[in-house]
């Protein structure tokens, strides 16, 4: 079966500083794919490139075999419409209530009537456990609630691909677990392909079907595969020390 996402020979730069060279990996349809790596290794830049916010220096990303970067802006927009993105802080539009936040993508790209849009928005908020807070503004919510509301907005249009930027960063263990469960629910029930950028080990093992580990020094991927397999089989001390918080196989300290 054709992979849902193919990253081919990707070169990335952040502020003219090259962070990644010749990156290659594939993501299967309907899996949770984790992009992991230490701080500053280019995870976020890679994510921005995958969602169309930052153009690569060279290389290509294919979604269902369709070129994403070697096409014009308008065609790219069409592919981007199949994306849902959960940003690190939620990135809810602060002048809109939660319901309006979730309704906005629907207003843009659905053929529903105004009242139907309201219903769908409320349903999505209910899915993340925020149905009661539909008329609150983002500033009135806690960090964990903002993230969940951000997820409700990300799934508003039932996207094929959902991207998560550090989903558990800044959350207490229970909220982080809840978000992980939501991610698995999306994969199991909607068949969504999910890309998660994170460095939280608990999440990596809980949700990752496949993973790639990026490394800042070599500016490339140093391991790919199922997180458990990587932990069990990898001979690379950098991989093992990352996956065990440096507790096994001399992290080089």
């Amino acid at each position: 079966m054709e992979p849902a996402v193919e990253v081919k020979n990707l070169d990335l730069a952040y502020n003219n500083f090259v962070v990644m060279r010749g990156l290659n990996f594939n993501i299967k349809k309907g899996e949770v794919f984790v992009i992991m790596g230490g701080s500053g290794c280019g995870k976020s830049t890679l994510l921005k490139t995958m969602i169309g916010l930052n153009s690569p220096q060279a290389g290509e990303i294919l979604y269902n075999g369709l070129s994403f970067w070697n096409i014009d802006e308008q065609e790219r927009q069409l592919i981007m419409r199949r994306f849902g993105v959960l940003y690190q802080g939620g990135a809810l539009w602060s002048s809109l209530t939660l319901r309006e936040n979730v309704a906005l993508p629907l207003q843009l790209y659905s053929n529903l009537s105004v009242s139907q849009i309201q219903d769908v928005a409320l349903l999505k908020l209910g899915l993340v456990g925020l149905g009661d807070y539909a008329d609150f503004y983002p500033a009135e919510l806690s960090g964990g609630m903002k993230k969940r509301a951000g997820l409700a907005r990300a799934i508003a249009l039932d996207p094929e691909f959902i991207f998560f930027d550090e989903p558990s960063a800044g959350l207490d263990p229970l909220s982080a677990k809840m978000l992980d469960d939501l991610i698995l629910d999306l994969r199991d029930n909607l068949g969504t392909t999910i890309v998660v950028v994170t460095h939280e080990l608990a999440s990596i093992f809980a949700i990752g079907d496949n993973a790639v580990l990026l490394d800042a020094d070599t500016k490339g991927a140093i391991a790919q595969g199922r997180p458990e397999d990587l932990l069990a089989n990898s001979k690379d001390p950098r991989v093992v020390s990352f996956l065990t918080r440096g507790e096994k196989q001399g992290a080089g300290r």
């Binding site: 921005k48 969602i51 169309g52 916010l53 927009q77 981007m80 419409r81 994306f83 993105v85 940003y87 690190q88 802080g89 990135a91 809810l92 539009w93 602060s94 906005l104 993508p105 843009l108 790209y109 907005r153």
Partner: peptide, 17 residues
Amino acid sequence: GIMQANEEIDALKTLGV
């Protein structure tokens, strides 16, 4: 500026707005 810092503007862009 604060919208930029909160990634709200990125969120608009990815939505194609």
